[in-house]
């Protein structure tokens, strides 16, 4: 989807902007009025002690959780906010057809023409199918149409991926029983166009796209250091390789912004530094913007351009690694602990 909207935003302009994001679970406020700005081309880290609300915030960014308040813009487009009149959406699907059905009944009552009734009913069914197909085949167009009817629905995870946000999970979530290659191919999903009909007829386009996507998947695997492991079942990979595979899978969606949730969790120092080198390479070679979540501040110090610190769901500091390191609030919340 390298259309006009993707035209590279000016360097250092915010790629993603979160304003006053709040997420409440019942009585518990997991994230409170948190702002975050991610400049294009930078590596931003979100850190904080365990339970600070990092992952919740992350899941709001990725479209998994609806925020209780606040909004998130990506490339200047409002993607995520509290839904407005979301119940109207299904009504909009059926409304045109229901109206035509009413007209059909009215026409029949007046003219007693069975033919007219049949034709109008067919039109109603056709319209319903068209509406649903629009939502299926042109999801972006469909999302843009919704606000015209006063409906706002937050982007779902897949909408965020289509828009250019890729992610990994803290507790690796690979498709365990699929092969390494298949995992990456699923990651490519939003950039492939072959339809069910193409697949059934085994069209030229389908064959070409399949071959090309396999090539690309192998290249991505090479990039993260998993060359030649195509047909290994994902869950049989060693732990560190599973992390790498997850990154390759996220890269497959051709993201502009990559969200990495504790990419070094459970790794030893050597693996950690390898992972950090990989992340630096992703920015320098692919020009990706990266948001990192970490609870260990030392890991991200060397690599981040900006750091945001969360504690108890609130942003307590934001700035360059140096500024954050000196911030007394951070020291108190974080480094002031006996172990540090």
């Amino acid at each position: 989807m390298s259309d006009a909207a993707v035209a590279a935003p000016e360097r250092r302009e915010a790629l993603l902007r979160a304003r006053r994001v709040t997420k409440r679970f019942g009585g518990l406020v997991a994230v409170r009025e948190t702002d975050l700005e991610i400049p294009a081309g930078s590596i931003v880290s979100l850190i904080g002690p365990n339970g600070a609300g990092k992952t919740t915030f992350f899941n709001v960014l990725a479209g998994i959780l609806d925020p209780t308040g606040g909004e998130i813009e990506f490339r200047g487009q409002r993607m995520i906010a509290r839904p407005v009149r979301a119940w109207l959406e299904p009504v909009l699907w059926v409304l045109p057809s229901v109206l035509i059905l009413l007209v059909a009944v009215a026409v029949f009552a007046v003219t007693r023409s069975v033919l007219a009734l049949q034709v109008l009913v067919l039109v109603a069914i056709g319209l319903l199918i068209t509406t649903l197909l629009l939502a299926i085949i042109r999801p972006l167009r469909y999302r843009q149409l919704l606000p015209r009817f006063g409906v706002f629905r937050s982007a779902r995870p897949n909408d965020m991926v289509t828009a250019g946000v890729g992610r990994t999970f803290q507790n690796i979530r690979l498709f365990q029983n699929m092969t390494v290659l298949e995992n990456v191919l699923v990651g490519m999903h939003s950039r492939l166009h072959s339809t069910a009909v193409d697949a059934i007829l085994n069209s030229k386009r389908h064959q070409r796209e399949e071959a090309a996507s396999r090539d690309r998947a192998r290249q991505l695997l090479g990039l993260v250091g998993l060359r030649g492991r195509d047909d290994v079942i994902a869950r049989n990979l060693p732990y560190g390789d599973q992390r790498r595979l997850e990154i390759a899978r996220a890269l497959a969606s051709d993201p502009v912004l990559l969200l990495l949730d504790e990419p070094t969790a459970g790794m030893n120092p050597r693996e950690t530094s390898e992972m950090m080198a990989l992340i630096a390479k992703l920015r320098s070679e692919l020009g990706l913007t990266i948001l990192l979540i970490e609870h260990d501040m030392r890991v991200v110090m060397g690599i981040s351009d900006r750091i945001t610190v969360l504690d108890h769901g609130e942003r307590i500091a934001e700035g360059t690694p140096e500024e954050v390191r000196r911030d007394p609030k951070v020291i108190e919340a974080y480094l002031g602990r006996p172990a540090a």
Binding site: A62, I64, P157, Q176, M178, H189, L192, E210
Partner: peptide, 29 residues
């Protein structure tokens, strides 16, 4: 068989394995 080996078949499999991960990889579940 052809569907199963296609993009669509892979996304069905992905949803069956882990729906959240599938959605987070661009599959409109």
């Amino acid at each position: 068989y052809r569907l199963q080996d296609s993009r669509l078949g892979r996304s069905w499999m992905a949803i069956r394995e882990d729906e959240l991960a599938a959605a987070s990889n661009g599959v409109n579940t």
